[in-house]
């Protein structure tokens, strides 16, 4: 569904991103890993068109630039790390902004809002002012908004999650990643997720790309690329690796 080829981002002649090829299939969760400044967020911005880039970003065999604004919004959703919203909307009104690219009736729209707020565990916050919510609660409200915007897609949607677990407590971190996996496996979403916790990548991702200095250093199954050697090479820290009874590797 997502095909990226020869994607370059420059800033004052300095190369910020230089990606040869990335391919994501519908139904897969792909982790985007790498040390700070590796180009993870830059990759997201280049995919969405928030920054100027050269090269091809193709979604469902159509170049991103060829998509109409609203149709693209129904197929490409982005959960940013933090939102700039500082006006006192109720949480459910923030989610309702996800209706912008859709043509749903008022009644159907509100039904979807409630359903998705329940799914991201924020329905109990519906009438609360967004500005009074904690960072993690805000992130879940925003996730419901993004899922609403993708709810009427004609083709499998692409969901970009930029550190969706950064403001969450332990339980919520796992329920958000569980949800991402559910969306991929049950509804065919393609999910691209920036993660700092490598164990979460091992646990939830089908594939990972490891970015370093703007380039894809490694690409493949998480257990294959997240070895103590590669981690030491890219993060300058050597973890110990142990295996759980079910064979799942854990990094300590």
């Amino acid at each position: 569904m997502l095909f990226i080829q020869n994607l370059h981002v420059y800033s004052d002649k300095k190369v910020l991103l230089n990606v040869d090829q990335i391919q994501l299939q519908s139904g897969d969760v792909m982790g985007v890993l790498g040390p700070n400044g590796a180009g993870k967020s830059t990759l997201f911005k280049a995919i969405t068109g928030d920054i100027q880039s050269q090269g091809d970003v193709t979604l469902h065999n159509r170049s991103r630039k060829a998509w109409a604004h609203q149709a693209l919004a129904r197929h490409l959703g982005v959960l940013a790390q933090a939102s700039q919203l500082s006006f006192p909307f109720h949480a459910q009104e923030v989610v309702a902004l996800g209706l912008t690219p859709l043509s749903l009736s008022h009644k159907e729209g509100w039904k979807q809002i409630k359903r998705l707020m329940a799914r991201t565990d924020c329905l109990h916050l519906a009438e609360r002012s967004y500005t009074s919510l904690s960072g993690g609660e805000r992130q879940r409200v925003q996730l419901a908004r993004v899922l609403l915007q993708l709810s009427q897609a004609e083709h499998a949607p692409l969901l970009l999650l930029d550190e969706p677990t950064s403001a969450q407590d332990l339980g919520q971190q796992h329920s958000i990643l569980d949800l991402a996996r559910q969306l991929a496996k049950e509804e065919g979403y393609g999910v691209l997720v920036i993660l700092h916790d490598l164990n979460q990548a091992l646990q939830y991702c089908d594939l990972c790309i490891l970015l370093d200095r703007g380039e894809v250093a490694l690409q493949g199954k998480p257990a294959e690329i997240l070895t103590p050697d590669t981690i030491e090479h890219h993060w300058q820290y050597r973890p110990e690796q142990v295996s759980l009874n079910n064979g799942q590797p854990i990094l300590i």
């Binding site: 149709a71 693209l72 939102s83 700039q84 500082s86 912008t100 690219p101 915007q149």
Partner: peptide, 15 residues
């Protein structure tokens, strides 16, 4: 209303 989310988020909503 969407613009209040920030320019990037508004753009991602198809505006």
């Amino acid at each position: 209303n969407a613009l209040l989310l920030g320019e990037s988020d508004a753009r991602h909503l198809g505006i």
